[in-house]
């Protein structure tokens, strides 16, 4: 009895060690490939960010990374919105606004968004850098008709299913969850911009 349980134990240890060994070797190889590709991937992502910054703030000719220490923003309905980066947009020597990168949580994970906001606190433009919302439904938030609604809005924007009033945007029917997530992200960006603009002017 004791002997057989000991044998079982040995068997168990042997199986676990084999699997650990295989996993360890595989992990080491993946780490090697990662070490080779990581700089290239991060360079490409930086290019992508630079393009998005230019898109949401076309008048700017330079961007300065701003050290934002406020952490994440709490939305009105109690969701935490991560702030991934803040840039100050420059035209010549003058600061003309800020760009805020936020990633609200949508239906299929984070919707990485960049919002360009001028010194008056009005949205210049918004852009979605990456998302994985449902194809054909949630990813409609990338459409121009939806995104262009945000231009010129300021303060705190609310969403509605019917005809939008002042400082309201119309959510996409069938994609309410994705629309609202994006909206929360934009509002968080507006809050960050207000903090920065308020603190320095």
């Amino acid at each position: 009895m004791q002997k057989s349980s000991k044998r079982q134990m040995n068997e168990l240890i042997r199986l676990s060690l084999t699997l650990c060994l295989i996993a360890g070797i595989t992990a080491a190889l993946v780490a090697l490939v990662n070490a080779v590709t990581a700089p290239e991937i991060s360079r490409r992502n930086e290019d992508k960010t630079a393009q998005s910054l230019k898109a949401v703030m076309p008048q700017a000719d330079g961007f300065e990374q701003y050290d934002y220490t406020g952490g994440s923003i709490m939305s009105d309905d109690g969701r935490e919105i991560a702030v991934n980066g803040v840039w100050k947009a420059k035209q010549g020597d003058e600061y003309i606004g800020v760009c805020v990168k936020v990633s609200p949580k949508g239906y299929g994970g984070a919707i990485e968004t960049i919002v360009g906001i001028n010194n008056e606190g009005e949205i210049i433009d918004t852009q979605i850098v990456s998302m994985s919302e449902t194809s054909g439904i949630g990813n409609k938030i990338q459409s121009d008709t939806f995104l262009s609604q945000f231009k010129g809005k300021s303060g705190s924007i609310t969403g509605t299913g019917s005809a939008p009033e002042k400082n309201q945007i119309q959510t996409i029917s069938g994609a309410t969850k994705s629309s609202k997530a994006f909206l929360r992200g934009v509002n968080a960006a507006l809050t960050v911009a207000a903090q920065i603009n308020g603190g320095e002017s």
Binding site: T18, L19, I22, A23, T26, A27, L29, V30, V33, N34, V36, T37, A38, E40, I41, R44
Partner: peptide, 22 residues
């Protein structure tokens, strides 16, 4: 089966990283 999946997942992650980079 567990060992196969680990090995396959390793190669898939490698090709995924290589494609993202190049």
């Amino acid at each position: 089966i567990a060992a196969y999946i680990v090995i396959i997942a390793g190669f898939v992650t490698m090709i995924d990283l290589l494609m993202q980079a190049f």
